[in-house]
Amino acid sequence: MAEYTAKKLVQMLITVLGVITLVFFTLRLIPGDAASAMAGDTLSGEALQALREQMGLDEPLVNQYLGFLRDLVTVDLGETITTRIPIAELLLRALPITLSIALATIVLSILISIPLGTLAAFMAHKGRNWLDNGLTGAAMIIDLMPSFWMALVLLLIFSLGLGWFPASGQLNWSDPWALVLRLALPVIVLSLSQVATLARITRTAVLEVLNEDYVRTARSMGWSELRVLFRHALKNAALPIATVVGLSFGNLLGGTVIVEFIFTIPGVGNLLISGINSRDYQLVQTLIVFYALLFVVINFATDLIYKTLDPRVQF
């Protein structure tokens, strides 16, 4: 296990380095340079030059790159261009919000999708397909809905129409119930598409495992169908499910940007959009690297979980 972890860790570090490098060089591809793009037509030659120096754009490319790396390693993320607030501080303020939404979504969607998918597979295995067909159909529609549109429709119905949830307003951490109501719709929107993905993969994985020879072996030993389902089928089906949970985290991160925007939640996603709108490349590049790191770490964790679930995994 230690050797496996070490190997995966090295792989992860290589990917992270690649990610950082890619982001760095993509930014240098901006026509002109980041400073002039950022300034638009507002700055004169001298002021522009000052901005360049401030951003370190006058230094040789290699030094810029090494400096970028050093800053990331020492978590010296710099300041926003317009408001002069340390980026690290902004990130620390926004991160708990985004992570709460993401975590709540993951927990909620796993709690719904795994029993649902398992039940659908179990029934389909016995030739009763109605739940399976219904689930597959609903999952398909949800998957194909643009999530911003789904969010607006839910907002229209449940906030503006029925008034169950607040559509905007401050996040109040001291009043948990208000917080739950405030974040409920965003989490529901994200969970719907997560459930669509996870319930479908659970259904497929369990159905496949139920047709495996070792399930028949367990049945031939006289174990009841439910025991076989829980002891053998779910344990084996957990492997593909774990992989997909890890991968769908990427979609979830993308989704948080959209729901934060719609529900005006001051998370990392809104920070990113405001960064783009104010052409603050320093902020944007930091956040994009941050998102990628988060995703890479989640995938690393998935690999480790997979390894503990499946004794066969070598490398």
Binding site: I14, T15, V16, G18, V19, T21, L22, V23, T26, L27, L29, I30, F249, G250, N251, L253, G254, G255, V257, I258, L272, G275, I276, Y281, V284, I288, Y291, A292, F295, V296, N299
Partner: peptide, 23 residues
Amino acid sequence: MTVVDIFLAFPSLLLAIGLVSVM
């Protein structure tokens, strides 16, 4: 595949957002 893996490390919507922010 090394390059592919690096690209796959970005959640796809965020990669697209990052790229349009630059381009």
